[in-house]
Design a protein around this nucleic acid. Sequence first.
DNA 1: CGGAAACTTGAAACCTTTCAAGAGTCGTGG
DNA 2: CCACGACTCTTGAAAGGTTTCAAGTTTCCG
Lengths: 237, 237
Amino acid sequence: MVKDILYDLKISCSHCNLGDMCIPRGLSQQGVNTLSGVVKQKLILHQDDFIYRQGDDFKGIFAIQSGMAKLITDDLTGNEHILSILLPGELLGFDGLNDTHSCSAIALNTVHFCELPKDRIDDLCRQVPNLTRELFRHSSDILKESQARVINTKLSGEQKMAAFLLDLSKRLKQRGFSESEFRLPLTRNEIGNHLGLAIETVSRLLKQLQQKKVVAIQQKEVQILDFPELKRIAVDD
Amino acid sequence: MVKDILYDLKISCSHCNLGDMCIPRGLSQQGVNTLSGVVKQKLILHQDDFIYRQGDDFKGIFAIQSGMAKLITDDLTGNEHILSILLPGELLGFDGLNDTHSCSAIALNTVHFCELPKDRIDDLCRQVPNLTRELFRHSSDILKESQARVINTKLSGEQKMAAFLLDLSKRLKQRGFSESEFRLPLTRNEIGNHLGLAIETVSRLLKQLQQKKVVAIQQKEVQILDFPELKRIAVDD
DNA sequence: CGGAAACTTGAAACCTTTCAAGAGTCGTGG
DNA sequence: CCACGACTCTTGAAAGGTTTCAAGTTTCCG
């Protein structure tokens, strides 16, 4: 039965291997249990599906269990901007905390995720010690990421690309994936959009990095061959 | 006596004219009173003084009562980046919510400000209904500002400058100041740093806007002469 | 008043974009 | 299973905007 399958798939926060970087970080075992009872787990979406949409009322805080997503916002002139790429174990939804979501979150491939629904947050914060604190921490983490991206925009094209790849690699490693080989489910267009570069420039920069034997790229498969050099490029050039 | 003067200067949150955009926003009268008892009020700093420093343990949330400040961060290579300009009635400190401040906040001129000290926040959130919610809202507001700046970095120099002036003008207006005439206590260098432009480019862009009779600038005094045109430049060009 | 700092201006260099065209990849259908 | 078409990606050349370098001017302040 479908129901049974879903039941089998259900994993509580205490058994989820993302615990230490997800919301449970910093909570007591009991707190995690309380959280588990409230969080909607193992939700699934496919490529191009929306987790939430810009303009939606605040829905809640989400955690990606597997797959990747992008956070985008449409500006006044209708142009789309990719604000961030979200990896397994990362949280999203904080852009809605002041009542309406200013971004859309879209699956880049098949995504499993959890939801801490808006309506339960206040209760839960009262019940679970440190949860409020922890949510503030996460929201501050996310603010810092956004600030880091402002700084990145001042770099040269090559530096942006190097820093982007290194950032992904680092975050993947932190989450138990290979830091040197991964699939980047983005088109050149999306990479360019995210980094503030024309698609042609993305193409040329990637070629350049390959010629230097710093990375190897086959379609969307990325391999980092020379970390020291990639780091040097990201900061020196 | 100095003490008497300080006493006279002391203004509770309920009597502060910034209430509706500051922390009290959304709190009951009683909540505001409780808040007032905890907030350190009418602190004063002068140009170039630090409100807090990058690397400091989280100190608390601050509100600017008068004057302006800048939020900066030093990157790995020691370069300073101006992340935002803070006006009266605006909040800062959210970059420290995950334990250490990732930015320094520096007074651009004489600044009066209030402090909600870190140690009291948890208590206060338990005592004052909606305060947690309200802090989340503010933190989300600030995240959105940061995201908006990421988008701004994709604009042309002239657009950046126009958007920057319009943004300041709008925020000043919201806070009861003139939207068309104000003093911008930043050097060309700081403007350039903030917008990601070379100082010479800032100079040329400002000249250009003056030649078009869109703004008039005398040293640090800014006058906006033609809002429609400035808006057109910010989005169209 | 004099010196330091901030700002402006011009010309050349540089990086990125734009335009244009060709090559490669993927999925569908005959 | 190959062919076709759509889409994505790559490549080259020219154009464009911003930076850099260099020098001069203005402003500020002791």
